[in-house]
Design a protein around this nucleic acid. Structure first.
Lengths: 103, 103
DNA sequence: CCGGATCCCAGCGGATACTG
DNA sequence: CAGTATCCGCTGGGATCCGG
């Protein structure tokens, strides 16, 4: 997903984050308060457990998401945008606006 | 690149357009008046002729780009954002802003 | 110089089974 | 429920040749 040759391209950092196949959709769900692993999966029919887990961990490692485990039984895990992740909001909102106008 | 199952996801149309590996970079170049096939290729080290041609045609088919051939010798081809393509500007600008702050 | 046609391959991500 | 592990199919895209 990374491309060191393009470091001089000014949009490379965000493309690096968003370029995964499901990444934008996952961020959209969490941005809209759909925070649980299970409910995200339900809202994204077709995504595999592996892909969802891999992408969530990737976003966590990038500092975009925080992960919280509740010691209930059965266990519950929620994901939230960090302060850094929240700064992606203008991008997500402009994507939504465009999609509404030009779908 | 398309996913009919996600039709109800409100950002699906734009994700469909931007999800190709090089698509955002190509749009960024053209948005910044780097309009020639050859100069785009020069600015994106690592992209193959096939991929650039495929992505340009894809964006043309989507109504994002217009293609103009000049009957010079050797021939020259330029690509420009259509009116529809220009409406992607807010997305590209927000991507640039984010990348500057958080790279 | 632009880009179509072919061939080919790495690696993304899908399916499934399994665990704490 | 929330993942991890494994296997593997498929497609995006790279290399190359060629023609306009």
């Amino acid at each position: 997903m990374d491309n060191h040759i393009l470091n001089e391209c000014p949009i490379q950092p965000v493309v690096d984050i968003l370029s995964g196949k499901w990444t934008s959709y996952i961020l959209w769900e969490i941005y809209n308060k759909n925070n649980h692993y299970g409910s995200i999966k339900k809202q994204l029919p077709g995504i595999s457990t592996r892909t969802l887990a891999v992408r969530l961990k990737f976003l966590e490692n990038k500092g975009i998401l925080s992960r919280t485990v509740f010691n209930t039984n059965p266990p519950t895990v929620t994901y939230d945008l960090t302060n850094k992740g929240l700064t992606l909001a203008p991008i997500l909102k402009s994507m939504k606006t465009w999609s509404e106008l030009y779908q």
